[in-house]
Amino acid sequence: MTMLLRKRRDPLVCKQAVALMTEYLENDLSPRDRERFEQHLAGCPHCTEYLAQMRATIAAAGQVDPDDLEPEVLDDLVDLFRRWKQQ
């Protein structure tokens, strides 16, 4: 994608901006492509909303808790640990 963009100096269209969202969030865009990306967002409320939703999705993933550990599973593993120690 980045290679393709470098050949062209046209403003980005929405589809291109959406394809670059992760590279943007990862700070992997070249300065030139970053500028084009930000220029597009400045004039596009839909892609701005899309970026906000990507950020909200990432933030929500960060709140995903693991399932609860069953006490019996913990007890069994600690029992195993005691036996391993004795070997």
Partner: peptide, 25 residues
Amino acid sequence: HWTEPPEPWTSIDARLDATEIARRV
């Protein structure tokens, strides 16, 4: 260009707390 742009999630906070969104993820 978008033909079907993303619908705003501005109402998320009002309807769902973070725990609920995380559950859906």
